[in-house]
């Protein structure tokens, strides 16, 4: 029998697929872009959900990985566009698969290095140190004129994927949707695996984990690295969606937004990031059309969730998480 959560998740997945297809054939490409934005932010938050939801690691610096992914796309594309070599004479590229691999590798490497240091701390210190690292990268991007500095870096033509016209909004949405689906599948596998069991146990009681002979620090470091990889991939997609990369992708607002998405949707829940991102983007769109101060209402909703629905929307719909 299917649980309520599974039914709800499938409905959300189908809705997120059906809405932009309908919009596309109704001649409303704007809504397709809106759905793509939801898919990409979801993917970024799925990454954070590994660290935050499964591992209890409240990273306030995931914008770093999001931005690194974005800049990987922007920098590679700008070199390909200008025909100028990168370092060591390597050429740039406009091929998305290559860009994604580069984004994931750099995102993972950055997360590994940042994790090496930050994961020696816990609680508020962890939050502050992850923030500090992300801010360092943010200011570095601002002060690096080669790639636009404060003004950011445009991607003149959206990067390409073999066999797909990425300039078609629906095609690009479907590409992002498939990647989000794969990421959710990986998240599920990870959560149910031995590694996931150890990671979720470190969130609950790391002394216990160490006492049975599993090193919590290494478990967390691997989780943080994987988490950064997912978020970096989303960053690359986000850059191509907007055809623009700027330091704002690296700013602490972005890190906060990702945390808000997860809390809205449901911390540690498979579809928490998707539901959170959908709510966030739709509120931004509807309320943003009514008032510039739409985030005031977002704040009220967040307050409501934190006070009355700890498990986020998914918790409200499907009840508390169960761990077999």
């Amino acid at each position: 029998m299917m649980t309520r959560e599974t039914t709800f998740n499938i409905s959300i997945a189908l809705l997120l697929l059906a809405a932009p297809i309908a919009a596309h054939y109704a001649g409303e490409p704007f809504y397709v872009t809106l759905a793509t934005r939801i898919a990409v932010l979801s993917l970024a938050a799925v990454g954070l959900n590994i660290a935050l939801g499964l591992g209890g690691l409240v990273s306030f610096g995931h914008a770093a990985f999001f931005g690194i992914g974005g800049y990987a796309a922007g920098i590679l594309a700008s070199h390909a566009f200008a025909g100028s070599p990168l370092i060591f004479g390597l050429p740039g590229t406009q091929q998305m698969p290559v860009i994604w691999i580069v984004a994931v590798l750099f995102g993972g490497f950055a997360a590994f290095l940042i994790g090496l240091i930050t994961l020696r701390t816990a609680g508020v210190y962890f939050i502050m140190i992850t923030l500090a690292f992300a801010q360092m990268i943010f200011y570095f991007a601002i002060s690096w004129p080669a790639y636009g500095g404060e003004d950011g870096l445009p991607i003149f033509v959206r990067n390409q994927f073999p066999g797909i016209n990425t300039l078609n909004p629906l095609s690009y949405f479907l590409l992002c949707y498939v990647l989000l689906g794969l990421a959710l599948l990986l998240f599920r596998l990870l959560a149910d695996s031995r590694f996931g069991a150890a990671l979720q146990a470190t969130r609950q009681n790391d002394v216990r984990v160490a006492s049975v002979g599993i090193p919590p620090y290494r478990i967390r470091l691997v989780a943080f690295t994987i988490s950064g990889m997912f978020t970096a991939l989303a960053g690359a997609l986000f850059a191509d969606l907007n055809r623009f990369v700027s330091p704002s992708m690296l700013s602490w607002h972005m890190s906060g937004e990702l945390i808000v998405l997860i809390i809205l949707g449901g911390v540690g829940r498979l579809f928490g990031p998707v539901v959170g991102a959908a709510l966030y983007v739709l509120l931004e769109f509807w309320l943003g059309g009514i008032t510039e101060r739409w985030q005031f209402f977002l704040g009220l909703i967040l307050l409501g969730v934190v006070l009355f629905a700890r498990g986020g929307v998914i918790g409200l719909v499907a009840g508390r998480a169960r761990h077999g």
Binding site: L189, R194, A201, R208
Partner: peptide
Amino acid sequence: SLAPEFSALRNVMLAVQAVSGSSFRF
């Protein structure tokens, strides 16, 4: 000192997992 959200079985399975090889299986 246990993992409170996990069942008794999953708490013990964590110990089995620790002695029966790697926790880095994904």
